[in-house]
């Protein structure tokens, strides 16, 4: 199986099982990865304390005392930190609550992708035979499904919800992780200590989860941290195309709202730029962390 088929540069390198056990820890040695982790911490704190940080209910329609809509306020005007939208919602509060959906989508999608991909890779790689054949044909099919169109179709059929993106990722994007991990397992399976465990009569389950799985975990984390970014970007695209969940405040729906209300023409940068920046920051953080993992996995890149 040609693992360099994968878009991730890290996957190109082979035969590195020996170095794998050095993984399974946060990539704290790399300053950029640490920066990425700090961004995560910042957004996680924002999401946790959203109720305290937000000044308004993000969906509430705001009025002036004489019952006019408090729309299109500039930052700072009338006490709205980042101003208000064309439909009279507080932008700062939306931004703050947006971090909740972003992290919710990003982290669940990452866990799903990493978990499913890892399980498939482990099972296929370790057991081989028809199990492997079936799982890898499934992966072939998943590779044949164009992802964004798939999410669009799925979102159109199901109730609009941010979980559609997570579901689509779980259904399709395990493929990359699955294939790479399978090839790692293939090479690990023949190693002496696994053979030893087998000779000693360890059960398959025990071998897989005690001896093999820990060695591939950093690889799962690598794909997981890329998936965070994918999920957030996908949610934003889906919202932009009008298939998002109108009841949930996310950075994607904020951008869609700003676009539909022509924030570009009115030069409402305070509305249009912050959600974009937040998306970029979180996604970049995912990349930086994944690069940190990559360097743990493939230290010769760093040398």
């Amino acid at each position: 199986m040609p693992e360099a088929m994968d878009a991730s540069p890290g996957a190109a390198a082979g035969g590195l099982a020996g170095r794998l056990w050095r993984g399974l820890r946060l990539p704290l040695g790399d300053p950029l990865a640490v920066f990425g982790l700090m961004i995560y911490v910042l957004f996680i704190l924002t999401a946790v304390f959203a109720d305290q940080l937000a000044t308004h209910d993000p969906t509430e329609i705001l009025y002036t005392p004489d019952y006019d809509l408090a729309a299109d306020r500039r930052p700072g005007e009338d006490g709205y930190i980042l101003g208000t939208t064309s439909l009279g919602r507080d932008i700062w509060s939306q931004l703050v609550y947006g971090s909740r959906s972003a992290l919710l989508i990003g982290l669940t999608a990452a866990v799903m992708v990493a978990l499913i991909g890892t399980l498939v890779g482990l099972v296929a790689g370790y057991f081989g035979g028809w199990v492997d054949a079936v799982l890898m044909r499934l992966a072939d099919i998943a590779f044949g499904i164009p992802f964004l169109p798939f999410v669009i179709v799925l979102s159109a059929f199901l109730e609009p919800s941010i979980w559609n993106v997570v579901l689509a990722m779980a259904l399709v994007l395990w493929r990359d992780t699955g294939r790479v991990i399978r090839s790692q397992v293939l090479s690990l399976r023949t190693r002496a200590y696994v053979e030893a465990a087998r000779v000693c009569g360890s059960s398959d389950l025990k071998i897989v989860f005690r001896h093999i799985a820990p060695n591939i975990l950093p690889l799962s984390f690598l794909y997981g941290s890329i998936a965070i970014g994918w999920a957030i970007l996908t949610e934003a695209s889906i919202s932009f195309l009008g298939f998002g969940d109108p009841d949930t405040i996310s950075w994607g729906t904020m951008l869609q709202d700003a676009y539909a209300s022509q924030a570009l023409s009115t030069r409402a940068f305070h509305w249009f730029v912050p959600p974009g920046l937040c998306i970029i920051l979180v996604v970049v953080a995912g990349f930086l962390v994944s690069r940190g993992y990559e360097e743990i996995l493939f230290p010769k890149l760093k040398e």
Binding site: G229, F240, G276, I279, V284, F287
Partner: peptide, 9 residues
């Protein structure tokens, strides 16, 4: 960063 930007944005 360029890879992290939403394309439509």
């Amino acid at each position: 960063t360029t890879r992290a930007m939403p394309e439509f944005w």
